[in-house]
Design a protein around this nucleic acid. Structure first.
Lengths: 336, 336
DNA sequence: CTGAAAGCGCTTACAG
DNA sequence: CTGAAAGCGCTTACAG
């Protein structure tokens, strides 16, 4: 079943059928429109989008790009939720979705040329590398969580700074005066460095001193916990009553470590996470954390991208979705 | 940059360039091959796959299909891991990946015709509905976790029966004599009903009685825990020392419930899960469970599908990946 | 070994 | 309002 078959069945030309399919109704009489639509219905015609893309140099395909990491990327619940949000909008807007993990940026360009992909959503890549890809310049693209001052593309992020500020501030308001921030490796600028800034400013806003070597612990290769890493954490925690941890997953690992060393939470030490992942309410104690609506983030990314594509929108806003404190059981109040 | 441009640059025709690109070397002189490849390299030529698909009626696109559920599907860590495995193989074999959530089966057919998709991996759909889709008959397709006796397609599952047998058997060997099985709604046949069979047979293999109403609790709408549901669980658990739960996520929810009601695990009651999800080792106590390599499952699905496509393999094997017991801390030994 | 030509299914100026 | 024709970038019998 092709446009030509429909044209023959109705007694018109492919041009006319095409015009009906594409909604160019002002070029076709109502009578013809009706006849064509009837045959399309009855025949179960399905358009060949390869042909369409070839003729249009546009596919209505959105590409989602993520880095090819050793242990698989989608495993991270964060990314699968992002993808859930993206898929919803992309489907609703009648686009198709391709996903691809890549080793280097040239592959984005390749995918774009392969299928005349109309736009990209780029997850967790390092922003400052992309602008080098000149060939990629005119493609609509949206980044997620990419902080890069010269970013030529829309970035969809979260209120990381504000969220961590709220987290630290909550600890402080609960009477904690000696608090710390633990994170995986910190890139600058990045989601994590923003969170660290929020932490720092909250501490200083209370007139307390902030000193990197005293208040911040950056750990590497922590999955699963290595011995020297354990000791660093135990050491860091010793003189503190509350800890902000840059991600729930890490917070949960650390809670597990502390528990195994005889700490009880929050009696001995208070913990606050970030992300509000599914399991954060299932651990014991239930984790106090900062919530962000990650599915919404994926949706917003897709909506913005499709707007850029369809409205030829040239604006490059920097969007941040809100973050808010979720109080559960891992922080205790300290009486002054 | 098209094939034609390359042909002009080298001084041959598009036919020849096409033959080089497609590896039909026996049709081209080595000298020409070299010249063409050199220009392809230098020009950064990227093939237009829409044109290729149009000419070939084959796209080298694999479609991954999953149901459009209210709350988003990929959120389930199970599915995102499957997708991780699929994406790895699909990429390695130089295919492209489209993903789509659907409401009804016609959409699979539509996607297939739209892009000349070469094959599908179908997640969590209800098998017995698909064979109705006559149009879909000749498309290579692989199901995941679909039990349907008349299945006309390959199914990639796990040793669900054997896994749950091992789980129940472990409880029994640890001295538990009164044990139960808790699950969400059970379809027949399904992954869960297989697990239930394994449980039942393990119990009976020890000469112990199995009675559905006594040994099985099927719960509905358990997220988050409703009041009447709580009571059912507490009631069910009362006269038992060990519980097999059909999924880690549910096991973790139930552990949380029991803990809140004053139970201590495993002292008061032993729990064993299924899946070995990431968080199962992060809860307290660490969850004893049945492991299955879900990423491998995705890989196997993709490998089988691509084999069907490329080798025109008509076999429809029923593959089951192994399951094995992971002993952690949520089961205690009962002294006889 | 090489090339001319038709075809895949669509779109889009352009003419009438 | 309708249609004839060229074109999108490939592939593939077929002829030489």
């Amino acid at each position: 079943m092709t446009i030509k078959d429909i044209a023959n069945a109705v007694g018109v030309t492919p041009t006319t059928v095409s015009n009906v399919i594409n909604g160019n109704y002002h070029k076709v009489s109502q009578k013809t429109i009706d006849k064509v639509q009837k045959v399309i219905q009855e025949s179960g015609y399905v358009p060949n989008k390869n042909a369409r893309a070839l003729a249009n140099n546009s596919s209505k395909i959105i590409g989602v790009i993520f880095p090819k990491t050793t242990e698989g990327f989608m495993q991270d619940p964060f990314h699968s939720q992002i993808l859930t949000g993206i898929e919803k909008i992309v489907g609703a807007k009648k686009y198709d979705l391709m996903i691809k993990s890549i080793d280097n940026y040239e592959e984005i360009y390749e995918l774009m040329r392969n299928w005349s992909v109309d736009g990209f959503i780029i997850l967790s890549l390092i922003g400052y590398q992309l602008p080098q890809l000149e060939k990629f310049k005119n493609v609509p693209a949206v980044f997620i969580d990419t902080y890069y001052e010269e970013l030529k593309y829309i970035n969809i992020g979260s209120e990381d700074y504000q969220g961590e500020f709220k987290a630290a501030n909550y600890l402080l308001e609960m009477g904690h005066e000696s608090i710390g921030f633990i994170s995986y490796h910190i890139d600058y600028p990045s989601v994590i460095s923003m969170r660290l800034n929020g932490f720092k400013d909250a501490v200083e806003s209370k007139g307390l001193p902030f000193d990197y070597s005293e208040n911040v612990l950056e750990i590497v290769g922590f999955d699963p916990i290595g011995k020297e890493c354990e000791n660093k954490i135990l050491d860091f925690v010793k003189n503190k009553t509350g800890i902000c941890i840059s991600a729930d997953i890490l917070a949960i690992e650390i809670m597990e470590l502390l528990r195994s060393k005889g700490y009880s939470i929050p009696e001995d030490i208070s913990i606050i996470g970030f992300d509000n992942v599914y399991l954060s309410r299932l651990v014991n104690p239930k984790l106090t954390t900062i919530n962000q609506d990650i599915i919404a983030k994926g949706k917003i990314a897709a909506e913005n991208l499709i707007n850029m594509i369809e409205k030829n929108n040239k604006e490059k806003p920097n969007i941040k979705i809100p973050t808010n404190l979720i109080i559960r059981d891992s922080v205790k109040k300290i009486n002054a």
